[in-house]
């Protein structure tokens, strides 16, 4: 009976109904798909063609001949260039490393918070969820700026450390990888806590009671029952943090050092400072390819989850 509704799909649709699909469809094709194809195209074109001043990129007037010569003009030079300069390789590597490490840190910090939330009384849980979401609504930029305040040389953190006699000399925080990690963990914590909480909250309490009834101590029940059943939340949270962290720009730019840039910064610099569009586009295309892998894994996981339900 479940696909009863789907069979209702009417073969003929009114003009208004067609508009419901076509309007957002056309918008997304025009402002998401086409721009991305342009990026792909520029990444494959010779540097000279696409550099400012803005020469025409597409020769639609040329018809089939124009399209043929367009494909003939494509080259992989820009990708070869990415391979030849270790700067790009190191930049990708650093992005992946920072994203992966901060995802692990987020899990370690986020899991106990999400778990503690599910143990709180029902009415308090709603308030806690709101408290976790609220910072997400305040500007990203401002939250990073708040940490610039705290991590300054004479800032509150160093003064606290000095006052507690934990350090002799005030340590340097800003422009270090440590600051980038702090920034990412701080900004992305809601993205980790909320999916974990959603999964843990759905966990049937009687499962733990059953485990206890069968002679399993609490800590062991957590390890043998709670942890395995929260795996979907862990995967969702990890991907929600990892994927945007790889392409992060604001955090490394404001808190990180200038020695090795993350890949988001590299695209920004190639574009704004070096005005090298084809290289920026090639860097972007490679980044998208890197990110597609975890997304496909995520899709696969959710599909399996849906089938299990």
């Amino acid at each position: 009976m479940s696909d009863a509704h789907k069979s209702m799909a009417k073969p003929r649709r009114s003009f208004v109904a067609k508009l419901v699909v076509r309007l957002p469809y056309a918008w997304l094709v025009a402002f998401f798909l086409v721009p991305f194809l342009i990026v792909l195209k520029i990444s494959l074109s010779q540097t000279a063609i696409a550099q400012p001043p803005y020469t025409p990129i597409f020769d639609l007037a040329g018809g089939w001949h124009g399209i043929a010569s367009f494909f003939a003009g494509l080259s992989l030079d820009n990708y070869a260039f990415l391979g030849s300069d270790p700067l790009y390789f190191l930049s990708y590597l650093k992005s992946l490393e920072i994203a992966a490490l901060s995802t692990v840190m987020l899990l370690v910090i986020g899991y106990p918070i999400a778990y503690a939330m599910t143990r709180a009384p029902r009415r308090m849980q709603a308030v806690l969820v709101l408290l976790v979401i609220l910072p997400f609504w305040t500007s990203f930029l401002i939250r990073i700026y708040a940490w610039m305040n705290i991590l300054q040389h004479d800032g509150p953190l160093n003064r606290l450390l000095l006052a507690l006699d934990l350090v002799r000399e005030p340590p340097v925080w800003l422009s270090t990888n440590t600051a980038v990690y702090i920034g990412i963990v701080y900004s992305y914590l809601p993205f980790m806590v909320l999916p974990l909480y959603a999964t843990l909250e759905k966990l049937d309490e009687s499962l733990l009671e059953a485990a206890a009834d069968l002679g399993c101590p609490r800590w062991k029940a957590f390890w043998l029952v709670t942890m395995p059943l929260s795996a979907p939340g862990v995967i969702a949270g990890a991907l929600l943090c990892f994927i945007p962290a790889v392409g992060e720009f604001v955090i490394p730019d404001l808190l990180g050092g200038s020695r090795t840039a993350m890949i988001g910064q590299t695209i920004w610099t190639e574009f704004f400072a070096n005005k090298d569009w084809p290289t920026a586009s090639a860097v972007a295309v490679v980044l998208v390819c890197l990110l597609v892998t975890p997304i496909v894994i995520f899709q696969h996981q959710t599909m399996r989850g849906i089938e299990r339900d």
């Binding site: 699909v21 957002p24 469809y25 997304l28 094709v29 402002f31 998401f32 798909l33 086409v34 721009p35 991305f36 342009i38 990026v39 520029i42 803005y54 025409p56 990129i57 597409f58 994927i243 945007p244 790889v246 392409g247 992060e248 720009f249 988001g264 695209i267 920004w268 574009f271 569009w277 920026a280 586009s281 972007a284 980044l287 998208v288 990110l291 997304i295």
Partner: peptide, 30 residues
Amino acid sequence: GRLLFAAMIYAPLVMPEVITGLSMLLLFVA
């Protein structure tokens, strides 16, 4: 075209802002 439609709705959610911005700019220039 439903598959493409759904893909275009989900893809921007995970697309790094730098790339979304870059591609938009290139469109407006084009």
